[in-house]
């Protein structure tokens, strides 16, 4: 299994805090598939900078409120 990217995220937490927004709704809002949202939430995929900004904008927060760095 490949090493996970050293990036953490609060996508699931933010989604649930936004009226239990579904993964499909978030996927549609940022222009990716639901499987990609699942992969992001599981920490198996680091989204592009564009998608990262789109996610932050959907939740009305800053980029660093969604994504964090856990590496050295």
């Amino acid at each position: 299994m490949a090493k996970r990217p050293p990036i953490t995220n609060r996508v699931r937490e933010l989604r649930e805090a936004h009226d239990q927004m579904s993964q499909s709704a978030l996927a549609k809002a940022i222009g990716v598939t639901r499987q990609t949202v699942i992969a992001i939430e599981r920490g198996k995929y680091s989204p592009s900078l564009e998608s990262a900004f789109r996610i932050a904008r959907v939740f009305g927060v800053g980029l660093e409120d969604v994504f964090g760095w856990e590496g050295d």
């Binding site: 499909s24 996927a27 549609k28 222009g31 990716v32 598939t33 639901r34 499987q35 989204p47 592009s48």
Partner: peptide, 14 residues
């Protein structure tokens, strides 16, 4: 299925 609207979509991860 629930994934209906996504059929055939091809995003950045794909």
């Amino acid at each position: 299925s629930d994934d209906g609207p996504e059929v055939g979509d091809f995003d950045e991860r794909d």
